[in-house]
Protein backbone atom coordinates (compact mmCIF):
# COMPACT_ATOMS: atom_id res chain seq x y z
CA UNK A 1 0.00 0.00 0.00
CA UNK A 2 1.62 3.23 -1.09
CA UNK A 3 1.80 5.80 1.66
CA UNK A 4 -0.30 8.65 0.35
CA UNK A 5 -0.57 11.74 2.49
CA UNK A 6 -4.23 12.21 1.98
CA UNK A 7 -7.04 9.87 3.01
CA UNK A 8 -9.05 10.92 0.03
CA UNK A 9 -6.25 10.18 -2.40
CA UNK A 10 -5.78 6.79 -0.75
CA UNK A 11 -9.47 6.00 -1.15
CA UNK A 12 -9.50 6.99 -4.81
CA UNK A 13 -6.39 4.96 -5.44
CA UNK A 14 -7.97 1.95 -3.79
CA UNK A 15 -11.07 2.37 -5.92
CA UNK A 16 -9.03 2.49 -9.11
CA UNK A 17 -6.80 -0.49 -8.39
CA UNK A 18 -8.25 -4.00 -8.44
CA UNK A 19 -7.13 -4.34 -4.86
CA UNK A 20 -5.08 -6.23 -2.40
CA UNK A 21 -5.81 -9.09 0.01
CA UNK A 22 -7.30 -6.65 2.46
CA UNK A 23 -9.74 -5.43 -0.15
CA UNK A 24 -10.77 -8.98 -0.97
CA UNK A 25 -11.50 -9.71 2.69
CA UNK A 26 -13.42 -6.46 2.99
CA UNK A 27 -15.34 -7.42 -0.15
CA UNK A 28 -16.41 -10.73 1.35
CA UNK A 29 -17.53 -9.15 4.59
CA UNK A 30 -19.31 -6.33 2.78
CA UNK A 31 -21.08 -8.89 0.62
CA UNK A 32 -22.24 -10.65 3.77
CA UNK A 33 -23.38 -7.33 5.22
CA UNK A 34 -25.26 -6.34 2.08
CA UNK A 35 -26.92 -9.72 1.87
CA UNK A 36 -27.98 -9.63 5.51
CA UNK A 37 -29.18 -6.04 5.32
CA UNK A 38 -31.31 -6.68 2.25
CA UNK A 39 -32.72 -9.84 3.80
CA UNK A 40 -33.61 -8.01 6.97
CA UNK A 41 -35.21 -5.15 5.06
CA UNK A 42 -37.28 -7.62 3.06
CA UNK A 43 -38.41 -9.61 6.08
CA UNK A 44 -39.20 -6.37 7.86
CA UNK A 45 -41.36 -5.33 4.92
CA UNK A 46 -43.45 -8.47 5.23
CA UNK A 47 -46.36 -8.54 7.59
CA UNK A 48 -44.95 -10.89 10.16
CA UNK A 49 -44.80 -8.56 13.09
CA UNK A 50 -45.38 -11.46 15.46
CA UNK A 51 -42.65 -13.77 14.19
CA UNK A 52 -39.81 -12.29 16.19
CA UNK A 53 -41.91 -11.03 19.07
CA UNK A 54 -40.90 -11.90 22.59
CA UNK A 55 -42.92 -14.12 24.85
CA UNK A 56 -44.11 -11.31 27.08
CA UNK A 57 -45.21 -9.25 24.09
CA UNK A 58 -47.04 -12.22 22.62
CA UNK A 59 -48.81 -12.87 25.91
CA UNK A 60 -49.84 -9.25 25.97
CA UNK A 61 -51.10 -9.41 22.37
CA UNK A 62 -53.11 -12.52 23.20
CA UNK A 63 -54.54 -10.95 26.30
CA UNK A 64 -55.64 -7.82 24.53
CA UNK A 65 -57.04 -9.87 21.66
CA UNK A 66 -59.02 -12.13 23.96
CA UNK A 67 -60.28 -9.07 25.82
CA UNK A 68 -61.39 -7.53 22.55
CA UNK A 69 -63.06 -10.74 21.41
CA UNK A 70 -64.79 -11.08 24.77
CA UNK A 71 -66.09 -7.55 24.42
CA UNK A 72 -67.27 -8.34 20.90
CA UNK A 73 -69.00 -11.49 22.15
CA UNK A 74 -70.76 -9.53 24.86
CA UNK A 75 -71.87 -7.07 22.24
CA UNK A 76 -73.13 -9.91 20.06
CA UNK A 77 -75.08 -11.43 22.96
CA UNK A 78 -76.60 -8.08 23.80
CA UNK A 79 -77.61 -7.43 20.20
CA UNK A 80 -79.02 -10.92 19.85
CA UNK A 81 -81.10 -10.37 22.96
CA UNK A 82 -82.41 -7.14 21.50
CA UNK A 83 -83.17 -8.88 18.22
CA UNK A 84 -85.03 -11.70 19.98
CA UNK A 85 -86.99 -9.23 22.05
CA UNK A 86 -87.95 -7.31 18.94
CA UNK A 87 -88.87 -10.54 17.18
CA UNK A 88 -91.07 -11.61 20.08
CA UNK A 89 -92.60 -8.18 20.14
CA UNK A 90 -93.43 -8.31 16.45
CA UNK A 91 -94.76 -11.85 16.81
CA UNK A 92 -97.07 -11.00 19.68
CA UNK A 93 -98.20 -7.87 17.91
CA UNK A 94 -99.03 -9.91 14.83
CA UNK A 95 -100.97 -12.38 16.95
CA UNK A 96 -102.86 -9.58 18.63
CA UNK A 97 -103.69 -8.01 15.29
CA UNK A 98 -104.88 -11.35 13.96
CA UNK A 99 -107.07 -11.94 16.99
CA UNK A 100 -108.46 -8.42 16.79
CA UNK A 101 -109.25 -8.94 13.12
CA UNK A 102 -111.05 -12.20 13.86
CA UNK A 103 -112.99 -10.55 16.62
CA UNK A 104 -113.83 -7.62 14.36
CA UNK A 105 -115.17 -10.05 11.75
CA UNK A 106 -117.29 -11.85 14.32
CA UNK A 107 -118.62 -8.65 15.80
CA UNK A 108 -119.15 -7.19 12.34
CA UNK A 109 -121.38 -10.10 11.38
CA UNK A 110 -123.31 -9.83 14.64
CA UNK A 111 -123.66 -6.06 14.33
CA UNK A 112 -124.45 -6.24 10.64
CA UNK A 113 -121.59 -4.02 9.55
CA UNK A 114 -120.05 -6.57 7.18
CA UNK A 115 -121.70 -8.75 4.52
CA UNK A 116 -122.10 -12.37 5.47
CA UNK A 117 -122.45 -15.63 3.61
CA UNK A 118 -123.25 -19.13 4.78
CA UNK A 119 -125.84 -21.90 4.87
CA UNK A 120 -129.35 -20.85 5.79
CA UNK A 121 -132.91 -20.44 4.60
CA UNK A 122 -134.77 -18.12 2.32
CA UNK A 123 -138.37 -17.44 3.35
CA UNK A 124 -140.73 -15.95 0.84
CA UNK A 125 -143.94 -14.44 2.27
CA UNK A 126 -146.83 -13.23 0.15
CA UNK A 127 -149.49 -11.23 1.87
CA UNK A 128 -152.57 -12.30 -0.18
CA UNK A 129 -154.32 -9.01 0.27
CA UNK A 130 -153.21 -6.90 3.18
CA UNK A 131 -153.00 -9.22 6.14
CA UNK A 132 -149.26 -9.65 6.62
CA UNK A 133 -147.59 -6.75 8.44
CA UNK A 134 -145.31 -5.82 11.26
CA UNK A 135 -146.87 -8.23 13.74
CA UNK A 136 -146.25 -11.28 11.61
CA UNK A 137 -142.81 -10.21 10.46
CA UNK A 138 -141.73 -9.41 13.99
CA UNK A 139 -142.87 -12.83 15.09
CA UNK A 140 -140.97 -14.41 12.23
CA UNK A 141 -137.77 -12.52 12.99
CA UNK A 142 -138.14 -13.41 16.64
CA UNK A 143 -138.49 -17.08 15.81
CA UNK A 144 -135.47 -16.95 13.55
CA UNK A 145 -133.42 -15.36 16.30
CA UNK A 146 -134.58 -17.94 18.76
CA UNK A 147 -133.51 -20.60 16.30
CA UNK A 148 -130.01 -19.12 16.23
CA UNK A 149 -129.94 -17.07 13.04
CA UNK A 150 -126.66 -15.23 12.86
CA UNK A 151 -127.43 -12.77 10.07
CA UNK A 152 -130.87 -11.76 8.79
CA UNK A 153 -131.80 -9.66 5.79
CA UNK A 154 -135.16 -8.44 4.51
CA UNK A 155 -135.89 -8.26 0.76
CA UNK A 156 -132.12 -8.17 0.01
CA UNK A 157 -132.25 -4.55 1.16
CA UNK A 158 -132.27 -4.22 4.92
CA UNK A 159 -130.01 -5.94 7.39
CA UNK A 160 -131.88 -6.89 10.54
CA UNK A 161 -129.84 -6.05 13.63
CA UNK A 162 -130.49 -5.34 17.27
CA UNK A 163 -131.59 -1.78 16.61
CA UNK A 164 -133.83 -2.60 13.67
CA UNK A 165 -137.32 -1.10 13.89
CA UNK A 166 -140.38 -2.16 11.93
CA UNK A 167 -143.39 -0.01 11.20
CA UNK A 168 -146.64 -0.61 9.31
CA UNK A 169 -147.12 1.65 6.38
CA UNK A 170 -150.49 3.07 5.49
CA UNK A 171 -151.67 1.11 2.51
CA UNK A 172 -149.32 -1.75 1.73
CA UNK A 173 -145.91 -2.76 2.98
CA UNK A 174 -143.77 -2.01 6.00
CA UNK A 175 -141.06 0.49 6.81
CA UNK A 176 -137.88 -1.13 8.15
CA UNK A 177 -135.18 1.24 9.37
CA UNK A 178 -136.57 3.94 7.09
CA UNK A 179 -136.69 1.71 4.02
CA UNK A 180 -140.05 0.95 2.45
CA UNK A 181 -140.51 -2.75 1.77
CA UNK A 182 -143.41 -4.09 -0.23
CA UNK A 183 -144.68 -7.61 -0.36
CA UNK A 184 -143.76 -10.22 -1.19
CA UNK A 185 -141.32 -10.18 1.68
CA UNK A 186 -138.16 -12.26 1.50
CA UNK A 187 -136.23 -13.11 4.64
CA UNK A 188 -132.66 -14.38 4.26
CA UNK A 189 -131.31 -15.95 7.40
CA UNK A 190 -127.91 -17.57 7.97
CA UNK A 191 -127.80 -20.32 10.55
CA UNK A 192 -128.55 -23.98 11.01
CA UNK A 193 -131.00 -24.67 8.18
CA UNK A 194 -133.18 -27.32 9.84
CA UNK A 195 -133.41 -25.46 13.11
CA UNK A 196 -134.37 -22.25 11.35
CA UNK A 197 -136.95 -24.00 9.17
CA UNK A 198 -138.58 -25.85 12.06
CA UNK A 199 -138.50 -22.66 14.11
CA UNK A 200 -140.85 -21.09 11.60
CA UNK A 201 -143.04 -24.12 10.99
CA UNK A 202 -144.11 -25.42 14.37
CA UNK A 203 -147.85 -25.56 15.18
CA UNK A 204 -149.47 -22.15 15.79
CA UNK A 205 -146.17 -20.58 14.89
CA UNK A 206 -145.13 -18.09 12.23
CA UNK A 207 -146.34 -20.06 9.22
CA UNK A 208 -149.76 -20.73 10.77
CA UNK A 209 -150.04 -17.06 11.70
CA UNK A 210 -149.30 -15.80 8.19
CA UNK A 211 -151.61 -18.33 6.62
CA UNK A 212 -154.25 -17.34 9.20
CA UNK A 213 -154.30 -13.82 7.75
CA UNK A 214 -154.39 -15.03 4.16
CA UNK A 215 -150.74 -15.06 3.22
CA UNK A 216 -148.39 -17.86 2.11
CA UNK A 217 -145.00 -18.90 3.35
CA UNK A 218 -142.43 -20.71 1.22
CA UNK A 219 -139.27 -21.87 2.99
CA UNK A 220 -136.24 -22.93 1.01
CA UNK A 221 -133.20 -24.42 2.73
CA UNK A 222 -130.10 -23.34 0.83
CA UNK A 223 -126.50 -24.43 1.22
CA UNK A 224 -125.43 -20.84 0.59
CA UNK A 225 -127.28 -17.68 1.49
CA UNK A 226 -125.94 -14.24 0.71
CA UNK A 227 -126.57 -11.43 3.17
CA UNK A 228 -125.22 -8.49 1.25
CA UNK A 229 -126.68 -5.43 2.92
CA UNK A 230 -124.99 -3.80 5.84
CA UNK A 231 -125.83 -1.18 8.42
CA UNK A 232 -123.64 1.75 9.23
CA UNK A 233 -122.90 1.57 12.91
CA UNK A 234 -123.79 4.66 14.88
CA UNK A 235 -121.46 5.44 17.76
CA UNK A 236 -123.45 5.34 20.98
CA UNK A 237 -124.24 8.73 22.43
CA UNK A 238 -125.08 7.75 25.97
CA UNK A 239 -123.85 4.27 26.61
CA UNK A 240 -120.20 3.59 27.13
CA UNK A 241 -118.37 0.41 28.03
CA UNK A 242 -118.39 -0.15 31.76
CA UNK A 243 -115.20 -1.05 33.53
CA UNK A 244 -112.92 -0.43 30.59
CA UNK A 245 -111.72 2.89 31.91
Amino acid sequence: MPEAEDGRARLLAALRRPGSRGQAVAAVLLAVLGFAAVTQVRSNGRDDSYVGARQGDLVQYINSLSLASQRAENEIARLQGTRDALGNDAQSRRTAVERAREQAATLGILAGTVPAVGPGIRVRITDGGSGVGTNQLLDGLQELRDAGAEAIELNDQVRVVAQTSLQDRSGRGVVVDGTVLEPPYVIDAIGDRHTLATGLQFARGFTDEVEGVGGTVAIKELPQVQVGSVVVPKPPRYAEPAGSR
Binding site: L15, Q23, A26, A27, L30, A31, G34
Partner: peptide, 9 residues
Protein backbone atom coordinates in the same frame (compact mmCIF):
# COMPACT_ATOMS: atom_id res chain seq x y z
CA UNK B 1 -12.70 -1.60 -6.03
CA UNK B 2 -13.23 -5.19 -5.10
CA UNK B 3 -14.76 -4.13 -1.80
CA UNK B 4 -17.40 -2.02 -3.55
CA UNK B 5 -18.08 -4.84 -5.98
CA UNK B 6 -18.48 -7.22 -3.05
CA UNK B 7 -21.02 -4.96 -1.39
CA UNK B 8 -22.99 -4.66 -4.63
CA UNK B 9 -22.82 -8.42 -5.13
Amino acid sequence: MIAAVGLLL
